[in-house]
Every structure is written in structure tokens, then in C-alpha cells.
Amino acid sequence: MKVIIVEDKAAIGHTVGQMFVNAVKNNPKVIFGLATGSSPESTYQYLIEDYQTNHTDWSNVKTFNLDEYIGLEPTHPQSYRHFMNEKLFNHINIQKENTYVPSGVGDYVSLAKQYDQKIAEAGGIDLQLLGVGTNGHIGFNEPPADFDSLTGVVDLVEATFQANARFFDSINDVPKQAVSMGIKSILNARKIVLIADGEGKAEAIKHLVEGEISNLWPCTALQNHPDVTIVIDYKAASLLTKQ
């Protein structure tokens, strides 16, 4: 596991964004796993700016997102499909039919069971982007997490429920379930990069980098993966014994 500590969220976006740009240049048909939430926004902004300046070609890239809220249509302003369109896809030349987000409506249970097969048929994820929750969740795999889980329906715990309430008009509007890639799904990626900023993520990062593997901190499952890079700011790294 490689740990890169940078100044702030903007520096995280620059560092990780360049990893993705390099991956596209090295393999125009690269397959990415993508994340949502506030953590990757600076990375996506970097990719947009790179596209506008350097015209990196995304036309043959495929992407698979980690998760989606149950009950939100793709057009809902708080859906993760809408987030990805607004924060990245609408601003680069990726083909929308090559961007996959789990479905949170319709027969979402059956569709979730097909998601890992769809990833496998595409060739598998080359580079997976992850954030991490304050309780150590990756995707929506809450503690205690099943390290053998594949994509499926999950319940959101109170901490995650409360953390996401700021994005909705009312806490009553926050979905209580989501479709999420499982831990095993995530670990199937060839390379993983996890990002985190702020003191609120410091305890999770401490467990991830220096703690024991435990399903009470789902992010520690990444210790079982051969190619993981952690890119964090100084605040998120504040509890690490070695910096």
C-alpha cells in the first residue's frame, strides 16, 4: 500500500486526476470504477480542465460507478447518475452508453445481481476510485461489512444517513437503502486509489493504513489488495504515526 500525503483537496484532485489522465493515454479503452460524494469532486474538476486544455480522448473509455440510492430516478438531482453527469460526463467526450451506474429504481434487485457480470464482460475494472466514510465504509459497505459481498442492496447506517442529509432538503428525504458494489466487487479491480481529506476521515485512514484487518472498519479490506494507493491531505493523515 502506497500513501501519498498532499496539501489539500485541490492537490488530491491534481494528483489523482493525473493518474486517470495517464491511464487514458496509456490505454484509450481503459475501464474505470468511479465514486461520488464530495471527495472526488476536485478530481473530476481536474479531468474536465485537462479535457478542455489537452483534449484527452475519453470516447472509448468505460466507467462503472460504485453505488446508487434506491428510490431515486436517474434524473433526480441527488441521484448519483445525475451527479456523475453534472460533475464529469457532460463535460468530456465520453459516450454515455459506456457509463454505468447501478439502478435504484425498477427491478433493482435483479439488476444489482447482474452488475458484477456486466463488469466482467467489459473486461474488469483497471482503476477503481474510492472515497471512505468516517466509519470506514467504502462504497456503501457499512460496518460490520461482509468481505465476500458482491453488488447488492444495502441498508445505510445512521452515521451515513446523517452525513448525507446535508445534500437533501429534509432528512426525511434521504434514502435509507442503496445499491452498492460489494467489498469483493471492489477488490476485483486491478488497481485501487482511495482519497480522503479533512480531520473527519483521520480515524478511518489510521485504521486503513496502520490497523488490523477488521470488518468493523470495512476499508481495511484493502490491505488484502496488491495495488492500492492512498492519496490524502495532512488533516486526514494527522493520526498516522509515520508521515
Rank of each mutant, 00 (worst) to 15 (best):
Y69W: 14
N65E: 10
L150E: 01
K235H: 14
V105L: 05
E158H: 14
R190W: 06
G106Y: 11
V30I: 13
G104Y: 05
I70H: 04
W58T: 02
Y115A: 06
I119W: 07
Y46R: 05
D169Q: 14
I5R: 04
I5K: 03
S214E: 09
F32N: 02
E49P: 05
I213Q: 09
Q162K: 15
Q177L: 02
T15K: 10
E142W: 08
K29E: 13
M181V: 01
T134F: 00
Y69R: 06
D233Y: 01
A202L: 01
G37M: 11
K242Y: 11
N164T: 05
F168S: 14
A189S: 14
L240G: 09
F20W: 10
I4P: 02
Q114N: 14
A112S: 13
Y234P: 00
G200H: 14
V231K: 06
T160L: 03
A35I: 01
K2F: 07
M181T: 03
V209N: 06
G106T: 08
N60Y: 11
F161I: 12
N172R: 13
G123Q: 03
K96G: 02
N188I: 01
N27T: 09
A112P: 04
S38L: 00
E121Y: 02
L187Q: 12
G124M: 02
N135M: 03
N65D: 06
H207C: 08
G123R: 01
V109L: 04
Y46M: 09
I205K: 09
K201F: 12
E73F: 09
P143Y: 10
D8F: 05
V157T: 15
S39Q: 12
A159T: 15
Y234C: 02
V3P: 09
I171G: 13
A221I: 06
P74T: 06
V16W: 10
N188M: 11
V21D: 09
V30K: 02
T53Q: 13
H137K: 13
Q128G: 04
S170W: 07
V21F: 09
V3S: 11
G37W: 12
H91P: 13
F147L: 08
E68G: 08
Q243P: 04
P144D: 06
S59V: 03
G198F: 03
S59T: 15
I12H: 13
T99C: 15
I92L: 10
V193P: 08
A221R: 01
Y115P: 10
L47C: 12
P144N: 10
F32R: 03
L208S: 11
T229L: 00
A189W: 00
A196E: 08
I205D: 11
D57P: 15
A237F: 02
F64R: 01
T36V: 12
L194T: 14
